[in-house]
Simulated scan of single mutants.
Amino acid sequence: MIETTRRRFTATTLALTALAGLGAILPGTARAETEAEGLVTEARLTVDRLMADQDFFELPKFIKAAKGIYIIPQLVKGGFIIGAEGGTGVFLARGTDGSWSPPAFYTLGAGSIGLQIGGEVKEVVFVLMSDKAVDAMLSSEFKLGADASITVGPMGRGVEASRTTDFTSDIYAFSKSVGLFGGGALEGAKIFTRQSLNESYYGAGATPRAIVIDRRFTNLQADDLRALLP
Rank of each mutant, 00 (worst) to 15 (best):
1 M>H: 12
3 E>P: 04
3 E>R: 15
3 E>H: 14
5 T>C: 07
5 T>D: 11
5 T>M: 12
6 R>W: 08
8 R>D: 07
8 R>F: 09
10 T>S: 08
10 T>D: 11
11 A>F: 12
13 T>W: 08
13 T>H: 11
15 A>G: 07
15 A>T: 12
17 T>A: 13
19 L>M: 09
20 A>Q: 14
20 A>K: 05
21 G>L: 06
26 L>Q: 07
27 P>E: 04
28 G>S: 06
28 G>V: 02
30 A>N: 08
31 R>P: 02
32 A>I: 08
33 E>Y: 08
34 T>Q: 05
35 E>A: 14
36 A>D: 05
38 G>F: 04
40 V>C: 03
40 V>A: 00
42 E>Q: 12
45 L>F: 11
46 T>N: 10
48 D>R: 15
50 L>E: 01
54 Q>Y: 10
54 Q>V: 11
57 F>C: 00
58 E>W: 13
59 L>A: 00
62 F>V: 02
63 I>H: 00
65 A>T: 03
67 K>Y: 02
68 G>Q: 04
68 G>M: 02
70 Y>Q: 04
73 P>E: 12
74 Q>D: 14
76 V>Y: 02
76 V>F: 01
80 F>G: 07
82 I>N: 13
86 G>R: 08
92 L>N: 03
98 G>E: 12
99 S>I: 08
101 S>N: 07
101 S>D: 06
102 P>A: 14
105 F>H: 03
107 T>S: 15
113 I>F: 15
114 G>D: 07
115 L>C: 00
117 I>G: 06
121 V>K: 10
124 V>Q: 05
125 V>L: 04
136 A>C: 08
137 M>R: 05
140 S>N: 12
142 F>S: 01
143 K>H: 01
144 L>I: 09
148 A>E: 09
148 A>Y: 01
150 I>V: 15
151 T>N: 09
151 T>D: 08
152 V>R: 05
154 P>D: 02
157 R>F: 03
157 R>I: 10
160 E>F: 10
161 A>D: 11
164 T>G: 07
164 T>D: 06
167 F>W: 09
168 T>A: 15
170 D>G: 14
170 D>M: 05
172 Y>M: 02
173 A>D: 06
174 F>V: 03
175 S>P: 01
176 K>F: 01
177 S>I: 04
177 S>E: 15
179 G>V: 03
180 L>T: 09
182 G>W: 11
186 L>I: 15
189 A>T: 10
189 A>C: 01
193 T>K: 14
194 R>N: 14
194 R>H: 03
195 Q>G: 04
198 N>H: 10
201 Y>H: 03
203 G>Y: 01
205 G>F: 05
205 G>R: 13
206 A>H: 04
206 A>G: 09
212 V>W: 03
214 D>F: 05
215 R>T: 09
216 R>Y: 00
217 F>R: 08
219 N>R: 03
220 L>M: 07
221 Q>K: 13
221 Q>E: 13
223 D>A: 14
230 P>L: 11
